[in-house]
Amino acid sequence: MIRLEKIHKFFGDHEVLKGISGHVAQGEVLAIIGPSGSGKSTLLRAINLLEVPTSGKVCIDGVCITEGRVDIGKIRSKVGMVFQQFNLFPHMTTLENIIYAPIKVKKLPRKKAVALGKSLLAKVGLKNKANTYPPHLSGGQKQRAAIARALAMEPEAILFDEPTSALDPEVVKEVLNVMKELAHTGITMVIVTHEMGFAREVADRVWFLDEGHLVEDSASQTFFKSPQTKRAREFLEKVL
């Protein structure tokens, strides 16, 4: 469903991504891991063109979005994103955060959107927070609301950019649990994470990035039991 071909990305003179190619199948859960500064987040953000690659192709469902004349808005509404810093809209209630895009982008009637929003809030355990403004939510609640917001567009894939890195340790689990429930329900998930336990348990596949290269692309079982590359072995020894 997501295909990357020779993605290069420069920030000024600095090459952050050095020719990354890969493929994510429909319904697959992919974890992208690697040391800080390896280009994980940049790669993830290239998938919905929040970072436009300097060269290379990004294709989603066979449509190459890096080649002009593509309605990028339409593609983005098929690929949701969850951010490290949540990025909820602070001037809208939690429910409004969730139903805004379905109403304005997908032209869903308000009534239906509200019903959808409420069921999603229930799904992420925030039933009674519909009318709360995001500044009054805890970090874990914010991230769960952000996941509900992404789900409201009924996307085919969701990109998670270090979704638990800004959270207090004790609420990490409640967010991971919501993500676990999502996995293997047909939705494609690409997760940049430092939670190795979670990656091992939930991901089907792992991409290990180092210094802008995709060093290893393995099934998650294989990767954590017997990594194929020396660099990945070193990394795992340090973090596990």
């Binding site: 919905n48 929040l50 808005g73 339409k74 593609i75 983005r76 509404s77 098929k78 690929v79 949701g80 994103m81 951010f83 810093q85 949540f86 990025n87 909820l88 809209f89 805004y100 895009a101 304005k104 982008v105 952000a146 917001r149 992404a150 567009m153 990109l159």
Partner: peptide, 18 residues
């Protein structure tokens, strides 16, 4: 305004004017 606001909105497919 935090730059994440723009990014979150873009990632939902919302148009620039909206």
């Amino acid at each position: 305004v935090d730059k994440g606001q723009m990014e979150a909105a873009l990632s939902l497919g919302i148009s620039y004017s909206l």
